[in-house]
Nucleic acid binder design. Structure first.
Lengths: 142, 142
DNA sequence: CACGACCATTGAATAATTCAACGATTGGTT
DNA sequence: AACCAATCGTTGAATTATTCAATGGTCGTG
């Protein structure tokens, strides 16, 4: 708190602030796309978290909500056939949430729409875009 | 749709996909900070949109929700003293939402917590962090 | 000045989240 | 082996948040 001023000079912090600002730009469009598929943000984020099957409690952790809310969300997604409950071999208490083929398909469809970069990114020169891409790749490879 | 493959090669699209992936990393922490202040995401985003006073309908547009939901959200934020309704000189139908001093203070406090960059950004070399910062600055200046 | 359109609000219906309690299962302790 | 506390997902009730339809007040245009 006392070193807010010094933090502001930290390039990582500054970069992150800009990062969030850019992200804020696209939030409305993100909501539109989700709404087109009849999904609320938590439902979409649940879907998006299922790169591999996950215990329901783990989804609750990410979404920061009650387990019972995940039960409810899962019911909705299951009704649409996007998701299914599987048994966990190693622990019969847990149920694993997994994408169905349809769920996988829809998720990719949504992702494709969200992948369209916002104006701020698109306005960069192609060289800058490549530099940015490489930088972000490096960040994720840590 | 037919050119999904070519889009994948577009550096801006690739960069944006990575961008979103990094952002996903911090979502849980963001929810935690908001929860510490008793705010739901829509309430926080409303607060965050008030760089200058905004018509309530404009907030509804950004949040992609009904105007009546904004009335409700505003009531909550007003109860806490974060926000106030002002008259719009030029159009007596509209009410402008504006941050109170307290609201300004709290918003900065929250922002300071969210400004802490995630590991992926922090793990970059200081030189890369600076490059990233400069790139994002340039993107926003378009 | 009459008309349709827009703004924020209200009230009712609905959706989504939280909270407390439960049955089933697990792992650890004795 | 037999308890015991803890965890998992679900249920039901209470609460909170969002949508939908209708309203009073205001605006701009014809």
């Amino acid at each position: 708190m006392a070193d807010t001023a010094t933090n502001r000079r930290d390039p990582a912090t500054e970069a992150w602030e800009l990062f969030m600002e850019i992200f804020g730009e696209v939030r409305p469009r993100m909501l539109d796309v989700q709404a087109d598929y009849g999904l609320k943000p938590p439902q979409f984020f649940a879907l998006n978290a299922l790169d591999e099957p996950q215990p329901m409690s783990h989804i609750a952790d990410m979404l920061r909500c009650d387990r019972s809310a995940v039960t409810w969300i899962t019911d909705r997604l299951e009704e649409r056939g996007y998701v299914e409950r599987r048994a966990d071999e190693s622990d019969r208490r847990v149920k694993l949430l997994a994408l169905t083929d349809e769920g996988q398909r829809v998720r990719e469809e949504i992702r494709a729409q969200l992948a369209l970069p916002p104006d701020s990114i698109a306005s960069l020169s192609r060289a800058d875009q490549r530099t940015l891409r490489d930088l972000l790749r490096k960040a994720l490879e840590r």
